[in-house]
Every structure is written in structure tokens, then in C-alpha cells.
């Protein structure tokens, strides 16, 4: 069988070639170009200037730290909260939902395919002060006047949790399904209480799914700006918004590029170590 595999080692490379070329042109090359741009002098539009690290110095001194911190904190909070919400949901779907499992999973997946601009718009009309769906209904039915979290960082954070919950849930569901039921029974039989069984058995066995979910959620949130734009008003500036401002309004491409490279570096620092430890064959080919 091994020898058989070796003789077939060539076709794989040919099948990979079109995808590889496409990714080189549209994924790797842009990253390289952005990196090159980030080394150009401030407010230039060409790629032929003298190389400089000035933009990176500005990135750390000129108040770009706040948007970056906000994005990192927002991503971390979203990852933790979605994991806490998704774990019981995945456990219920996998172990207890029975015939309802597939219908419920489909219902949870469906909103992913509705544009996030539609859903965030919906969230904004729901949360809107006075005439919003929530405030208006409470006022009309119960005569209660409530305030609103719209246009605060809390609203943006809430929106991020809302948008990214399915991205945590489905990888986690895969992870939970990797736990053989008899391992949990064995732990219980050997005296583990619910918490001990969760910590010692379920969490480590579901770890691959949890890691993927956390990675996906964190990275998607790191770049997220629609939540802050639609729900957060002007209360928060996320890193993507800061980059966009450099590109569009300030017309300072090298500065925007430097900020982009910083986000890419943060992403790579988080993604690459985890991804190199995961066995993709095992996860997709279960």
C-alpha cells in the first residue's frame, strides 16, 4: 500500500496547482504588497520610495493603540462569551436533542447566510431608543420607558457576540461529537463529579473543535467593523475603521498599510501555532 501511494505522489501536486497559483496571486501577493507599502515614506502613493520604519513608529506612538486594543479586547470578550454560550448549546444538540437536533442546527446555521448588514440593521431597529422594537413594545404594552445601549461600546460588543455565535458553535459541535460517550461514563464511574468530568475528560477531548471555534471567532472579530459602525455609533473606533480612515480620508496609504501589517502579524501569531498543531485530516475525515 505504501509503495502504491508513492507511485501516485505526482498527480496531487498537479491538482493543487490551480488553487495554489490563485492563492499566490490573490492572497500571498497582496500581503507582500501591503508589507512593502508599509515601508514607504508617509503619504506617498508609489512603491519606489526609500524604505523606512517610520510608519511603524507612528503606529505605536500616534494613538493607534486604542483602536487596536479595542479590537483585541472585543475579540477576546466575544470568544469567551460565545464559548460559554455555545458549550451547553452544543452539548444539548449532540446528546439530548434527538430528532430535533438537525432541525435546530439548521435553524442556528441559517442566519449565517443572511447578510450581516441585514442582521445588524435588525439588531439596531430592535435596540433603537424610544421607537425601537424593544423600547416601543415595552412602552406600548407595559407603559415602561427604557433607555438604550445603542451607540455605546456595549452595543458593538453585543453585536459581535450575536454575529459570531454560530462560528463558535459549529466547530464546537464537531469537537463535542469527538467525545466518546463511554469516556464520560468511565469518568463518572471512577468517581468524577460533573465539573471534574468536564475539566478532565470533556474539555480536553473537545479541545480541537473548541480551538478552531475560538480561532475563527477571534480572528473574525479582530477585523470586524460593521458592528461598531452600525451599533456602536461613534463610541468606538476599531482597528479596521482606523485603517480605512488612513486609506480613504487621510490618503496615507503607507500608514494604513503598516496598521494592516500589524493586524496580520497579530493574526499570524495566534493562528499559526494552533493550526500547526491541529490534525486537519482527523477533523475533516472523522
Amino acid at each position: 500500500m505504501d509503495g502504491d501511494m508513492n507511485t501516485r505522489s505526482t498527480p496531487g501536486r498537479w491538482f493543487a496547482a490551480p488553487v495554489a497559483v490563485f492563492m499566490m496571486l490573490c492572497f500571498a501577493a497582496p500581503i507582500l504588497i501591503v508589507t512593502w507599502y508599509s515601508l514607504m515614506p508617509s503619504r506617498t502613493f508609489g512603491l519606489t520610495g526609500d524604505l523606512t520604519l517610520e510608519n511603524y513608529r507612528s503606529a505605536f506612538t500616534d494613538g493607534y493603540g486604542r483602536p487596536l486594543m479595542w479590537s483585541l479586547m472585543g475579540a477576546a470578550t466575544t470568544t469567551v462569551v460565545t464559548a460559554i454560550l455555545a458549550w451547553p448549546t452544543a452539548v444539548i444538540l449532540h446528546r439530548y436533542a434527538g430528532k430535533w437536533a438537525s432541525v435546530t442546527s439548521a435553524l442556528i446555521a441559517l442566519p449565517i447566510f443572511i447578510s450581516e448588514s441585514v442582521r445588524l440593521f435588525g439588531m439596531s431597529v430592535f435596540l433603537m431608543p424610544r421607537g425601537g422594537i424593544l423600547a416601543g413594545t415595552l412602552n406600548a404594552v407595559f407603559g415602561i420607558q427604557i433607555g438604550s445601549i445603542m451607540n455605546t461600546w456595549a452595543a458593538a460588543q453585543f453585536g459581535m457576540i450575536y454575529i459570531h455565535l454560530p462560528f463558535m458553535l459549529f466547530p464546537l459541535l464537531l469537537g463535542i461529537s469527538l467525545i466518546p460517550a463511554d469516556r464520560i461514563e468511565a469518568a463518572r464511574d471512577l468517581g468524577a463529579n460533573r465539573w471534574q468530568s468536564f475539566r478532565e475528560i470533556e474539555l480536553p477531548l473537545a479541545a480541537p473543535g473548541l480551538m478552531i471555534g475560538a480561532l475563527l471567532t477571534f480572528v473574525l472579530c479582530l477585523g470586524a467593523n460593521a458592528e461598531a459602525a452600525i451599533l456602536g455609533g461613534r463610541a468606538v473606533t476599531v482597528i479596521t475603521a482606523a485603517i480605512e480612515q488612513r486609506f480613504n480620508y487621510a490618503q496615507d496609504w503607507p500608514m494604513g498599510a503598516a496598521l494592516t501589517v500589524i493586524v496580520i502579524a497579530v493574526t499570524a501569531l495566534i493562528v499559526l501555532p494552533v493550526l500547526s498543531r491541529l490534525d486537519l485530516n482527523k477533523l475533516t475525515g472523522r
Binding site: 466518546p180 463511554d182 461514563e185 469518568a187 463518572r188 464511574d189 471512577l190 468517581g191 463529579n193 478532565e200
Partner: peptide, 16 residues
């Protein structure tokens, strides 16, 4: 099960 003074060897062994 976790409060019974018994232990089981599973068919699959259920080793961790």
C-alpha cells in the same frame, strides 16, 4: 455512578 463504590471495565475499555 460517581458515588457508588463500584468500578467498571468497559467493553471498549474507555481508556482516556
Amino acid at each position: 455512578a460517581n458515588k457508588r463504590p463500584t468500578a467498571m471495565v468497559f467493553q471498549s475499555l474507555a481508556l482516556f
